[in-house]
C-alpha cells in the first residue's frame, strides 16, 4: 500500500469526503495517518465538525481499533517561511521578504512555487521519521486539487526543476518528484456515475499516465441503491395503470377508482419510475465507460441522511470492506 495517497476528483464528487474516509480507514487498527488539505477551503474541519484547522498537525479523530487521524491544512505562505527557517535559518529574512511582498509573490504569482510548497510539505510528512527511526505517519492522505488540475499540480516540481536548473529549489523539486513518481504514491480519482465526471476522470487518468504519475484506483462515490431491477423496469412500460392503482389501494393508500387517492398516485409514481429508468440506463453506460479504464474500481454508497461524521465512519468501514485501504 502506497504511503502517500492522493485523492482527486471533479468538483462536486466528494473528494474531500473520500479523502477523509480513506484517512480514517487507513488509521484503523492502531495506525496513524495524516490528512492533508492544500486548497485552503477548510473542508476537513467542516467534515469533522471542528473549528478551522491551523497550520499545525493536529489530531482530529480516533479510528476504530485505536488508530489516530491527524489533519493539516497547509498554508503556502507559512510553509514557505517554515521552509526558509528550516533550511536556511532565515526567520528574519522571511519577515523582510514578507514586507517586500516577496512572500505574496512567491505563493500567489510566481509560477509553481505555491504548488511546490504544498507538495513539498506533504512529501516531507511522508518521509519524516521519529527518533527511533519509525515513520511519523503510516500514511499521508492528500485532499488534492480537482482532476482538471491534478497532473499539473503534482508535476509542477518537474517544471520548476527545469526552470531553476541549479540551487536548492531545484534539489527540493527533484526530491519531491522522486516521491511522487514512485510506488510510494498512488493517485485516486473520485467520480460519480454521471457523464461529465466520468469523462473528466478518463481525461485525468490519461494525463497522469502521460506524466508517469502513479494512478491508483477510481472510486465511484454516492452510488444510489438499486430500487427497481431490470424486470421491474420492463414492467413499468407495460403495466396496466389500474393494476398499480389496485396494488396501491391494497397497500392502504386510498381508492383505486378514477379520482381515488391511490389512483391519483399512479401517474406521478410511474413518472418517477421513468426518470429512474432513464438515469439507470445512463449510469449503466457510465459504469461501462469506467470499466474500460482498466483500473480497480471502488464504490461508496450515497448516504440517505446526507454527510455527517457518523456517515464518514460508515464510508471508512465500507472502504475497508472493499479492501481499498
Amino acid at each position: 500500500m502506497s504511503r502517500l495517497q492522493v485523492v482527486s476528483g471533479k468538483g462536486g464528487t466528494g473528494k474531500t469526503t473520500v479523502a477523509a474516509a480513506l484517512a480514517l480507514a487507513l488509521a484503523t487498527e492502531g495506525k496513524r495517518t495524516l490528512l492533508v488539505e492544500v486548497e485552503g477551503r477548510q473542508g476537513i474541519a467542516q467534515l469533522f465538525e471542528t473549528e478551522a484547522l491551523p497550520y499545525e498537525e493536529r489530531k482530529i479523530a480516533v479510528a476504530p481499533g485505536g488508530g489516530e487521524v491527524y489533519a493539516l491544512a497547509i498554508d503556502p505562505e507559512l510553509a514557505l517561511l517554515d521552509y526558509l527557517q528550516m533550511f536556511y535559518k532565515l526567520g528574519g529574512a522571511g519577515r523582510a521578504l514578507k514586507k517586500l511582498g516577496a512572500i505574496d509573490f512567491a505563493t500567489t504569482v510566481a509560477p509553481g512555487i505555491r504548488d511546490v510548497l504544498l507538495t513539498g510539505k506533504a512529501c516531507e510528512a511522508v518521509r519524516r521519521k521519529d527518533k527511533k527511526g519509525r515513520f511519523a505517519y503510516d500514511y499521508v492522505v492528500m485532499d488534492a486539487p480537482p482532476t482538471g488540475r491534478i497532473t499539473r499540480f503534482l508535476n509542477v516540481n518537474d517544471e520548476v526543476a527545469g526552470l531553476a536548473k541549479i540551487g536548492p529549489i531545484h534539489n527540493q523539486a527533484q526530491a519531491v518528484m522522486r516521491v511522487l513518481k514512485s510506488p510510494e504514491t498512488a493517485v485516486h480519482l473520485v467520480t460519480l456515475l454521471e457523464e461529465m465526471p466520468v469523462q473528466e476522470t478518463a481525461d485525468g487518468i490519461a494525463e497522469l499516465r502521460a506524466a508517469r504519475l502513479p494512478v491508483g484506483r477510481v472510486i465511484v462515490n454516492m452510488v444510489r441503491p438499486q430500487v427497481l431491477d431490470a424486470a421491474d423496469l420492463e414492467l413499468v412500460g407495460t403495466v396496466k395503470r389500474s393494476s398499480v392503482a389496485q396494488a396501491l389501494s391494497a397497500a392502504g393508500l386510498g381508492g383505486a377508482r378514477r379520482g381515488g387517492n391511490a389512483e391519483k398516485l399512479v401517474d406521478p409514481l410511474l413518472r418517477q419510475a421513468a426518470e429512474y429508468a432513464e438515469r439507470y440506463a445512463l449510469e449503466q453506460e457510465q459504469r461501462g465507460a469506467l470499466g474500460e479504464l482498466g483500473l480497480p474500481l471502488g464504490e461508496l454508497p450515497l448516504l440517505a441522511e446526507g454527510m455527517d461524521l457518523a456517515g464518514l465512519y460508515e464510508l471508512a468501514t465500507e472502504l475497508r470492506k472493499q479492501g481499498l485501504s
Binding site: L228, A247, L270
Partner: peptide
C-alpha cells in the same frame, strides 16, 4: 377495493405488480 383485489389472487407477494408497486413506493 382491497377485498375486490384479494378475490382474484389472494395476497401473493411474488405478484410482479405488487413487487413493482412496492418498488415505486420505495422509490418515492
Amino acid at each position: 377495493d382491497a377485498t375486490a383485489s384479494e378475490e382474484g389472487s389472494p395476497a401473493d407477494t411474488e405478484r410482479p405488480v405488487d413487487r413493482l408497486t412496492a418498488g415505486l413506493l420505495r422509490l418515492h
